[in-house]
Nucleic acid binder design. Structure first.
Lengths: 336, 336
DNA sequence: CTGAAAGCGCTTACAG
DNA sequence: CTGAAAGCGCTTACAG
């Protein structure tokens, strides 16, 4: 391993002390202008790069942010990461990526092994079965701020960024009603997740507002995958009373439902309206194309990271909850 | 910021020296068994975590690996990352994620700002317009190993991991021929990329082997997006001599082509066979479903990371080029 | 405006 | 088997 240029090298070449080099480099103390310029020029000439381990050690900071989330192989989370990355990059922070595979055990193991001293902050979307969140509280208590996004634990007081799940769901269902559907089913996500409840509440309230009945048999909870959507849809089909529309908790489920129903000979739209949530690019690939609520995933990433940086720079930054609105996108799957 | 537990704390509590604590913790020197156990117990009781900035400073290593790639918002790259993450996690390495948005400038800026001292190695897929690769060579010369995957620069001697682009393309085209298609077009990726050339070569050689003509007008190069695929397909449609099948350089292009042609009234399969490359989940969502060559994306990530760790642990590890085979997946888009 | 010195938390020859 | 000391590269009171 070849040696790297250090401030000592610069100091020696210029025949000044390392203290002065350090001060000149950071431009924070009074340093003679000429001296500073000489140092800067030399640093540039030697292609000097600060050793982050050293600066981190004395400053107790690393310019490293960890992102912890269930998956990256889906559109929503990869778009969020891109947003996070965008602001981190501007501010010279590194993103350390941890993937939990939606496993609470792995999530806990990751948290446990976080060398807290190596991180300035955390951005996290919890796993589906987030039972206990004590491990996150410990991190915060140890002085490392966390911002949660999308999948947020209610119990922890810190900044959170999410889409407007309630109103998105409400709008989706009202859209179905507006299109004349009357017997509306809901295929939801895992019950443990906060936003599963919010989307369900939006669904229920929209029905209530329009005086439509709630049929408990038309409400099914399962996972978020396409396969889950297929299975849920097939269950709905077997009901004695069959619904005429489905609001799915996300696009993958909606697409699974759509494909399974189509295969069963149901005319999507005409016989069964379907609307999802996310605006995954796949929703324009299915046939018929899928109506949905577009989530501002990239924006959620950006806002989360901005908030985290505020927590980092201001010791006692007051936690904020940011709720970003979604947008109804009307496509073929809700066309009668 | 609350203080963290250090080896000094452990030493004080146990009334021994920090040297002994350090040695006991790493279990590398001879330490009296009892002493070691006392240290371990105390470390555990105090919930001690090593300060990576400090260990990194003395060991000149950080257990940090950087991953640099164009995007994460597509299936292939997000699957690769998941594979990388999987082995990094096992070995207690952190993944620092950098996204270039496929911009060579940003790629160069990222490399320039890498505090080399803070990284043990790099995993990279270069951007499409990778003209100069000197910046990567510099990193390697400075002692930080790089492993390239998928998009690899020919000019640099280091380990590389990729799918078998040539044979995958060859198999795809031979599949089309086996299904009876005779006038086969190719919609390829950006010309600068090495694998664009390899996939094209596989295409040409398969035609040659079966004595089919090469029509230069049926070979179109553009970007990798669905929109590019649509535009390419529409161009092919306007040709005086119209092809009866298309081999697309990736699934997104293939899906774009498929959708555009379908909209133009072409019967996919019967009138126009289409095959892609990747096995993006979207290829089972389009209708008709898309035949394709499945790439072992997750495996590519794993192998890349394993190789990088070998470079890191063995100063003079001899670079390896790993080529992983793809798998033909026959679906509806090549059914006559 | 500048330098000498102490210290961040850890590792590792050097003695014993 | 254990301790005292030096050092990794940087920052920052303390003097001057």
């Amino acid at each position: 391993m070849s040696r790297f240029i250090t401030i000592k090298d610069i100091a020696r070449k210029l025949d000044i002390s390392v203290s002065t080099v350090s001060r000149a480099l950071r431009d924070t103390y009074d340093v003679n202008r000429e001296t500073r310029e000489k140092v800067l020029a030399m640093a540039n000439a030697l292609n000097y790069r600060p050793n982050f381990n050293a600066t981190g050690l004395v400053n107790r900071s690393s310019h490293n942010l960890a992102v912890i989330l269930p998956f990256v192989t889906n559109y929503y989370f990869s778009a969020v990461i891109t947003g996070i990355q965008e602001v981190a990059y501007q501010q010279d922070y590194n993103i350390i990526l941890h993937i939990t595979n939606d496993s609470p055990e792995r999530e806990r193991a990751i948290i446990k092994n976080l060398a807290a001293s190596n991180l300035d902050g955390l951005l996290v979307a919890i796993s589906s079965d987030a039972d206990a969140c004590a491990h996150f509280q410990q991190v915060i208590d140890s002085g490392v701020p966390i911002v949660f996004f999308d999948r947020v634990p209610d119990a922890i007081k810190t900044s959170k960024v999410m889409q407007d799940d309630y109103n998105g769901a409400f709008d989706a269902v009202e859209h179905l009603i507006g299109r004349g559907y009357q017997k509306i089913a809901h295929i939801g996500g895992p019950q443990g997740l906060g936003f599963t409840r919010k989307r369900k509440k939006g669904f229920l309230d929209a029905l209530a507002k329009h005086g439509l009945p709630v049929n408990e048999e038309w409400i099914i909870h399962s996972g978020f995958s396409r396969e889950d959507g297929e299975a849920d849809a097939l269950k709905l089909l077997k009901q004695k009373k069959r619904p005429d529309a489905i609001f799915a908790a996300n696009d993958r489920k909606a697409i699974g439902a759509l494909m399974a129903l189509k295969k069963s000979g149901i005319k999507i739209g005409a016989q069964m309206g379907i609307i999802g949530f996310t605006n995954d690019p796949a929703s324009t690939i299915v046939s018929p194309t899928l109506s949905t609520i577009a989530e501002p995933a990239f924006e959620i990433g950006k806002r989360s990271c901005e908030l985290l940086l505020k927590h980092i720079s201001k010791r006692n930054f007051i936690p904020e909850e940011v709720i970003l609105p979604g947008t109804l996108i009307e496509r073929e799957s809700t066309l009668r």
